[in-house]
C-alpha cells in the first residue's frame, strides 16, 4: 500500500477531492498525491520512460544508433526510444439513476467520476491510450481511446457532463465495447453493479474473450453495505420509482444477506472469468482504486 502522509491522504479522500471544482485538478491532485506516497513502493520507476541520447558504447545494439543524428553530428548516439505503448484503456462509467444515490456527501456517481478522472490522468501519464464511455441503459457519451494531446481533456470533459440517468443495463455497453475493440486492452468498469449479475458477468466474459484485461470497481454507498436505517419509511427506487414500505429492523438481516450473496457471486464468478474485481465504497480513499489499477496493469503488461 502506498505510504501516505496525513496531507496526502486528505488529497485521496473522496469527500475532500469531490469539493475541488476542476476535474482535471482533481485527477492531478489524486494521482500526484498517490505517487507522492509511492517512494518506497515496489512500483517505483514503473512506466516512467524518458527518451534520451547517449554516446554509443560497445555492446549496444547497433540498431539503436540514431543515424540521422550521426549524419548531422558525425557522432554515434544511441537513441533511447520512448516506449510506444500499445495498451488501450477504456473507462466504463455507469451513470444510471442508482449511481446518484449517496447517503453521505459523495454520491456513487461523483465518486465514480473522480475515480475515472484520476485513472484517466494516470493512464495518460503512462502514455496509455485512454477513452471513456458513460452509460445507463444505453451509451450516453463516449470518447474513443486515443493518445492525442487533447485526449485527456476530452475524457475529463465527458466525465464532467455525467449526471444520473435512467435504469442501468451494464451488459449492453460491455457487449458493444467488446464488439468495437480491435485491440486487446484494459477495460475498467466503474459501476454499482445493481443489475442482474448474470448479464454483467456474461458481458465481462465477452471482453475477456476478446483478449482484454478487465478491472471491475464496484462502487457502493456505505448505507447500501450496512443498511443503517431505523425508521419505517417508504423506500423509493431511484431507477424504477417503485415504493416499498419498509420496517428496517424487519428487513435488515435479509437485505444484508442478499447483498453479501450478490457480491460473493461477483467475486467468485469474476475470478473464474479472470476479471479483477474490487469493491469500493464512497468513503474509501481513491488510492485503493489506483492501486488496484496499477496492480492489474503491472501484472499483465
Amino acid at each position: 500500500m502506498p505510504n501516505v502522509t496525513g496531507r496526502e491522504r486528505a488529497l485521496l479522500d473522496p469527500a475532500v477531492v469531490s469539493r475541488i471544482g476542476s476535474l482535471e485538478l482533481i485527477a492531478r491532485t489524486v494521482v500526484e498525491g498517490f505517487f507522492a506516497g509511492l517512494h518506497r513502493s515496489p512500483f517505483k520507476g514503473f512506466s516512467v520512460e524518458f527518451s534520451e541520447y547517449r554516446s554509443y558504447l560497445p555492446g549496444d545494439d547497433p540498431s539503436t544508433i540514431d543515424w540521422k543524428l550521426y549524419a548531422k553530428s558525425d557522432r554515434h548516439y544511441v537513441k533511447k526510444f520512448e516506449e510506444e505503448t500499445n495498451l488501450e484503456c477504456h473507462l466504463l462509467l455507469d451513470v444510471s439513476a442508482s449511481m446518484g444515490y449517496g447517503s453521505q456527501t459523495v454520491s456513487k456517481l461523483r465518486f465514480g467520476v473522480c475515480l475515472a478522472a484520476a485513472l484517466a490522468y494516470l493512464m495518460r501519464r503512462q502514455r496509455d491510450a485512454v477513452g471513456v464511455t458513460l452509460f445507463d441503459d444505453h451509451v450516453v457519451d463516449a470518447v474513443p481511446a486515443g493518445t492525442r494531446s487533447g485526449q485527456l481533456r476530452a475524457v475529463l470533459a465527458s466525465l464532467d457532463r455525467a449526471v444520473p440517468g435512467a435504469r442501468s443495463d451494464v451488459k449492453l455497453p460491455l457487449h458493444q465495447l467488446a464488439a468495437r475493440m480491435n485491440r486487446r486492452g484494459l477495460v475498467v468498469l466503474i459501476s454499482d453493479l445493481l443489475d442482474e449479475p448474470t448479464g454483467i458477468i456474461e458481458g465481462l466474459k465477452h471482453l475477456r474473450f476478446q483478449g482484454s484485461e478487465v478491472l471491475v470497481l464496484q462502487t457502493l454507498d456505505p448505507a447500501e453495505l450496512t443498511f443503517p436505517f431505523e425508521e419505517t419509511a417508504r423506500f423509493e427506487d431511484l431507477e424504477t420509482a417503485d415504493e416499498v414500505p419498509v420496517v428496517p429492523a424487519q428487513v435488515r438481516g435479509h437485505y444484508l444477506e442478499q447483498m453479501r450473496s450478490v457480491r460473493e457471486q461477483y467475486r467468485r464468478d469474476l475470478r473464474l472469468a479472470g476479471v479483477d474485481y474490487h469493491q469500493l465504497d464512497t468513503a474509501t480513499p481513491l488510492d485503493t482504486a489506483l492501486m488496484a489499477y496499477l496492480s492489474t496493469r503491472g501484472r499483465r503488461w
Binding site: D221, F229, R234, E236, L238, V244, Q250, M259
Partner: peptide
C-alpha cells in the same frame, strides 16, 4: 404519513424477507 426515502435499489427490500 410514512416518510419517503430514496434508495438505489429496492429489489432486495421487496424481495428480501
Amino acid at each position: 404519513r410514512l416518510p419517503r426515502l430514496p434508495f438505489s435499489d429496492v429489489r432486495f427490500l421487496r424481495g428480501a424477507p
